[in-house]
Computed example of a mutant assay.
Amino acid sequence: MAKKAVKDMSFMDHLEDLRRVLVRSTAAVIVMGTITYFFADYIFDQLIFGPTNPSFITYRFFCEASHYIGFADSICITELNFKIINTEMEGQVNIFVWICITGGFILAFPYILWQLWGFVSPALYEKEKKNAKLFISISSILFFLGVLFGYYVIVPMSINFLATFSISKIVENTFTIESYVSMVKTAVIASGLFFELPIIIYFLTKLGIVTPLFLRTYRKYAIVIVLIIAAIVTPPDVVSQITVAIPMLLIYEASIFISASVVRNKLKNEKSS
């Protein structure tokens, strides 16, 4: 029934459905972004600028870990010698608005997923439609885990590396608020979306675009890319690089497992029919 209904829809009908999804998703982001407005002081002082403090939880964790494994204070962070300045008249206003929008997007993400599921569900079978709650729950959890990973791992490691890197003692690190907040936003959102890789692979495999063989064949390239990313965003020590690389590699391996499961189920259904 669902398949036939989709076939009966015109291209304009699909566009109208997509428009409704985009409008509702945008409205949800605006509503949740408005809510973040009332917590602006906490968001900026404790969250956005939290990783600029040497007592940030991530720095303390790595310091304690270095003592535990016998590295003494080799990866302890005692100071982050840099300043954040505003150089544009409307700079802080723009940053305030974009942080509210970013916060709204993060908080509204489960609703956005629900809207997207409603858009693609008519093309799915009844059995697949029943998995809506499972899909939204797993996707949301993965996204929020990615956001936390980006905030507590990628952001502080990037700040530590960029704040301590210097080509000469003559140069003083003074970052604009735009570049700092942009780095934080990019790391958090990109990490959250990267953790959605298993879900993306699930649908790409169902569409026949990606196969487990393809993912396994290019695994070695994925490992190299992940290690390069880990080396870029972390200080030059093995512990930090492993901390960043392992979760990303696990996500890739989980994607291979999911892709293989989809192919097995597809073959099983073809045999039974």
Rank of each mutant, 00 (worst) to 15 (best):
N131G: 13
L107H: 05
P156Y: 02
E172S: 11
M183I: 11
S182D: 09
Q92V: 14
F214K: 01
E90A: 14
I77V: 15
S139P: 00
S182R: 08
A108H: 10
I199D: 01
Y151A: 09
V188G: 00
E79S: 15
L134P: 08
F165E: 00
F135Y: 13
K83G: 01
I170W: 06
I75N: 03
K169I: 02
Y202M: 13
L142I: 01
L197G: 03
N94H: 07
N160V: 07
F203E: 06
K169D: 10
S140I: 04
W98M: 14
L113M: 07
Y151M: 03
K206N: 12
I106C: 09
F109A: 01
T164M: 08
L134V: 15
I177K: 11
F165Q: 03
S182H: 08
F161W: 06
E126K: 15
P110M: 07
L134R: 13
L80D: 01
V210D: 09
L197E: 04
E178T: 09
K129S: 05
E90H: 07
I101V: 15
F135M: 07
S182Q: 13
G150E: 12
V93T: 14
I209V: 14
S158Y: 04
I154V: 15
S158M: 11
F143I: 12
M89C: 11
S166G: 12
L142K: 07
T102V: 14
E178Y: 01
G91S: 08
G103D: 02
F203R: 13
T87C: 05
I199T: 14
G208N: 10
W117G: 00
L116Q: 10
S168Y: 00
P198W: 08
F82I: 03
E90P: 00
K129M: 05
G208A: 10
N81A: 11
K133T: 12
V181P: 07
T102K: 02
S158W: 09
I141K: 00
E90Y: 06
V184G: 07
V147E: 02
G150C: 05
Y151R: 06
W98D: 00
I170E: 13
L124F: 11
L107F: 07
V120S: 11
K127Y: 04
L80G: 07
S179I: 13
M183L: 12
F194G: 02
I99T: 15
E178L: 08
L162E: 04
F214P: 08
V184E: 11
F214G: 00
F161Y: 12
F161E: 02
I77C: 08
N131F: 15
T205E: 13
L204D: 03
K133V: 13
S168M: 03
P198I: 01
G208W: 09
S140T: 14
